[in-house]
């Protein structure tokens, strides 16, 4: 939940408005999982201000979103 991440104060985070229990994505969709993980690692350098949360543009169960990013 975004609010929890904000309140707890995480150094760097990426957020997806997806159902709980699916932080990396859909089961048996390795391509989408991989993109989310890569974006999380990108945030290591992209985020320069402690506590920044990057909202990723992928919508739940819209596999086409992963093909353009």
């Amino acid at each position: 939940m975004r609010e929890l991440t904000e309140e707890v104060g995480v150094s760097r985070a990426v957020f997806l408005k997806w159902p709980m229990g699916h932080p990396i994505g859909e089961p048996n969709f390795p391509r989408g999982q991989r993109v989310v993980i890569e974006r999380a690692f990108d945030a290591l350098k992209k985020i320069e201000e402690p506590g920044t949360i990057i909202d990723l543009p992928f919508r739940w169960k819209r596999r086409g979103d992963f093909e353009v990013g």
């Binding site: 699916h22 932080p23 990396i24 994505g25 859909e26 390795p30 999982q33 991989r34 993980i37």
Partner: peptide, 8 residues
């Protein structure tokens, strides 16, 4: 892998 992406 959707919560613990060890294989990825």
């Amino acid at each position: 892998n959707i919560v613990f992406p060890l294989e990825r």
